[in-house]
Simulated scan of single mutants.
Amino acid sequence: MATVAEWIEGARPRTLPNAVAPVVAGMGAAAQLGAFSWWQSLLALLVALALIIGVNFANDYSDGIRGTDTHRVGPLRLVGSGVAQPKVVLGAALAALGTAGVLGLVLVAATGTWWLLVLGAVCIAGAWFYTGGARPYGYAGLGEVAVFVFFGLAAVLGTVYVQAGTLSWVALGCAVAVGCLSTGVLVANNLRDIPTDREAGKRTLAVKLGDGGTRRLYLVLVTVPFVITVALGIAHPTALAGLLAAPLLFVPVRTITGGGAGRALIPVLRDTGMAMLAWAVLTGAALAIAA
């Protein structure tokens, strides 16, 4: 039986900024529209957290039973390492995804935005079929697209819409920025795993692009949010506070451009996630103040 500490590590807490950042940015965009609601924001945050924990356990289960995680570098894999039975990890994944579904239903019912049930169902299906099912799209190089859509566009714009009942170009800018940084976390992860993924037959985008192309993609993804920050700053000067998150990327960018590989890339995931969270907090707060 896995210990509590192993379960916590298996949930991959370093990925939690990918769930928190889009909701925080969405809160700021909602406030900019004069529609911030603390309880709706809290529910949106709980949905995002349950969803990312669910996808992490689902990936652990699916990759584990396929043997993809046998020689993987990085955080503990519960199934791949043998510390937990596959069916138990599957149960944890389904429980987390079910929790996300129930909380999402409560949020939709409370706000009357019933069409968002379709979006929620797509998000839950996307979480499972990333590495699950007969043809997982994560094995076909579409994982980065899914992260951008689900933890960027859907999470930010969904948070804004349930509160404001509408969207704005500011909200879209925040969604693209967070989506790029969130995708950057996955790109760094897949860059690290190119050798083992290639051997296991997992054709991630990183495997397809190769080492050099993946590093260039990472640099583009972490640059775009700050271009968006400057654009936001033209209309809302306080939003330029988002530029203060840029120094947090100096070390990970140096690691990427310096050819860091294997375990040297693990801090890149953490630092990119923290830069994303810092950008969301700074920008969200700036937009709220401007409102």
Rank of each mutant, 00 (worst) to 15 (best):
K202F: 07
A231S: 11
D193M: 02
V253Y: 07
P195V: 06
V187W: 03
H236P: 03
F250A: 14
V207D: 02
G184I: 06
L269C: 11
A200M: 05
H236Q: 10
M276W: 08
L209R: 12
P267L: 09
V187G: 04
P225T: 09
M276Y: 09
V251G: 07
V230G: 13
P252H: 04
V253H: 02
T204C: 01
I234M: 15
V207W: 04
A239S: 11
T204G: 01
R203T: 10
P267Y: 07
L205H: 00
R270W: 12
I194S: 02
R215K: 07
G213F: 03
R203E: 08
P237A: 09
G210I: 02
G262C: 09
K208P: 02
L186W: 03
A261G: 03
V230P: 12
R254W: 09
P225Y: 05
T196V: 11
G233V: 15
F226Y: 15
A264R: 12
L248M: 14
G201R: 05
N190Y: 04
L191K: 12
A231C: 12
K208I: 14
A200D: 00
V227H: 07
I228V: 15
M276F: 11
I266G: 06
T223H: 06
G213P: 05
P252D: 00
V230L: 15
I194V: 12
N190H: 01
R216C: 01
T196Q: 03
L269I: 15
I266L: 15
A231P: 04
A245M: 04
V251F: 00
T257D: 04
T223D: 06
K202L: 08
I266M: 14
P247Q: 00
A261C: 06
L191F: 00
V253G: 02
D271A: 15
V253E: 08
L269T: 08
L269D: 02
L243I: 14
P267V: 13
T272E: 06
G201W: 07
P267N: 13
L232V: 14
V224G: 03
P225A: 03
N189I: 09
L243M: 14
L240R: 03
A264D: 14
R270A: 13
I266C: 10
G258M: 13
T272P: 13
V230K: 12
L249S: 04
A261W: 14
P195C: 05
A235M: 13
A235Q: 12
G242I: 08
L248A: 11
I256M: 13
T257S: 09
V207F: 05
L205F: 02
V222F: 13
V187A: 14
L186F: 02
T204A: 03
I256V: 15
L221I: 11
V268K: 04
L217Y: 09
A188E: 03
A235D: 13
R203Q: 08
I228H: 03
L265H: 10
T223M: 09
P225M: 05
L205A: 05
L265R: 09
R254N: 10
G259K: 13
P267Q: 10
G212M: 04
V268H: 05
L209K: 06
A264L: 14
G242P: 07
L244A: 10
A239K: 10
D197S: 09
F226L: 11
V253F: 06
A261L: 10
G213H: 07
P225L: 06
A261E: 15
V224A: 08
V185H: 00
K202G: 02
T257P: 01
